Simulated scan of single mutants.
Amino acid sequence: MRGTPGYMAPEWLNSVITEKVDVYSFGIVVLEILCGRKNVDRSLPEEDGHLVSVFKRKAEDGELLDLMDKYNEEMQSNAAEVMEMMKVAAWCLQNEYAKRPSMSIVVKFLEGKMDGENECDFSNPPVLAEVGTIGHPTDTAAWISSILSGPR
């Protein structure tokens, strides 16, 4: 197993490696940018040292805005967009690789070629609630060609 601790998808532990490990890592990077901190920070108390755990806890408590980078004025003035990007991060950080979108779907969403409200259900991200599905457009014909293969 090779990779940077804190950026590796959960499936690395099971040796079922898919193309979606990169999507997970992308979600970590997005979260770090939005929160203005590293994913793993050993200088913080143990319960706050792992950003994904803090993200999940804050989401369950309805306090995601508390995670936003407080030193970045642009983030502060665009809180609604930051919240949308946190949903994208949650979409990418799901533990089950099959529920994560392909990177091409994420790119289409970020380019505005997919409408988040109509194409993707961000209301209950499994990384936060561990139930339901997220990111599956209602019209599968529009995204079927973008799905990458499953396990290698």
Rank of each mutant, 00 (worst) to 15 (best):
M1H: 15
R2H: 12
T4I: 06
T4A: 04
T4C: 06
Y7Q: 11
P10S: 01
W12R: 10
T18F: 00
V23S: 08
Y24G: 04
Y24R: 06
G27N: 01
V30R: 05
V30K: 03
L31S: 05
I33Q: 07
C35W: 03
R37T: 08
V40T: 12
R42N: 08
S43I: 05
S43T: 10
S43A: 06
E46H: 13
L51R: 00
V54K: 07
F55I: 10
K56F: 08
K56A: 10
K58H: 15
G62L: 12
L64V: 12
L67K: 05
L67I: 01
M75H: 15
E81V: 02
E84I: 06
M85L: 15
M85T: 09
M86F: 14
K87G: 12
A90T: 09
L93E: 09
N95G: 15
N95S: 11
N95M: 08
E96P: 11
Y97S: 15
Y97R: 09
A98N: 05
K99G: 00
R100L: 00
R100A: 05
R100M: 01
P101F: 01
S102F: 04
M103I: 13
I105Q: 14
F109H: 15
M114E: 10
D115V: 09
D115N: 15
E117T: 06
D121Q: 11
V127P: 01
L128N: 06
A129L: 07
E130M: 02
I134P: 00
T140F: 08
T140S: 13
W143C: 11
I144C: 06
L148Q: 15
